[in-house]
Design a protein around this nucleic acid. Structure first.
Lengths: 152, 152
DNA sequence: CTGTGTGCAAACATTTTGCAAGCAG
DNA sequence: CTGCTTGCAAAATGTTTGCACACAG
């Protein structure tokens, strides 16, 4: 799968169109509205949230939540979007156009520091290989107390 | 929160009883059946799976799935059990009495493989130190496709 | 034109809640 | 006895599917 990190919206849209064509799928206004809304907002969305925002930004399209679900699944299957699960409360999606990063989270003040460590990534691949898994993604969050909160 | 790693069943049950008493909750046969079933089986359970197994092992109790849900939530709130989310497919639970480990998760069939890697743990501490964090906990989940699902 | 996409409503799957009866303390 | 707990059924959530019409290619 190709890497879509740091693409501009135009490049991303181009990738999307190529993908659609390759699978005999059609380029529709609703699909673009969903992609654009995800791109314009760096947040993580539940399908419901995204549906409401698309409706607000593109009221004329009258997009249904069904289409949001179908498009999110399409984007995820093609590695354009990724999701994080929340048990019975469903999933949250984000576009995969940001460089990979993990999170260091302060339990006192909520500060979030992003980091990247190539050695850990390599070890993760080694572990996956050991268990015959084809790795697609990972989630790593370190919890602790930041410098400021340690002194106060 | 106290550490419950490596406790025997008797010790675990004792902790559970103390917890119940402290919160004016009652010690019931169903609650014990659920705890025991989790203890006897090192797997990760969906509420549904656990419900079926409890019914099979303790048919006389006629335990309802409602009680399984309520007990799992009780155990999780009190850090006796932990859960992993699977989007629309819900959660899987396990007892927290096992030594620390992380999870490798198959995105197709939900298979969970546990692993432990000392080198990664060391690197995590290094990263925390680099950002002046005092590390208290971490969460690492690797997502991928297991051997079986790669071939089918 | 052909066949994919869409919104709607209904179906599904999972989890939570209301309630009357049961039982632990 | 008191009030927490239980199982059942119903409700609430979240997601998917069937269908007839719309529309991209």
């Amino acid at each position: 799968m190709e890497n879509i990190e740091n693409l501009s919206y135009e490049e991303l849209l181009e990738r999307f169109k190529i993908l659609l064509k390759k699978n005999s799928l059609k380029y529709t206004a609703q699909r673009e509205a969903i992609l654009k809304t995800l791109f314009d907002n760096p947040d993580h969305f539940t399908p419901e949230n995204l549906y409401l925002l698309v409706k607000e930004n593109y009221p004329k399209l009258n997009t249904g939540i069904t289409t949001v679900y179908r498009t999110l699944n399409l984007l995820e299957e093609n590695s354009i979007a990724t999701s994080i699960s929340f048990g019975a409360q469903g999933k949250k999606f984000e576009l995969g156009n940001k460089p990979h990063h993990d999170h260091l989270i302060c339990e006192k003040c909520g500060l979030i520091v992003e980091f990247e460590d190539a050695t850990i990534e390599k070890l993760q691949h080694k572990i996956a290989k050991l268990h015959d898994f084809k790795l697609t993604d990972h989630l790593m969050q370190l919890y602790g107390v930041c410098k400021k909160c340690q002194t106060t």
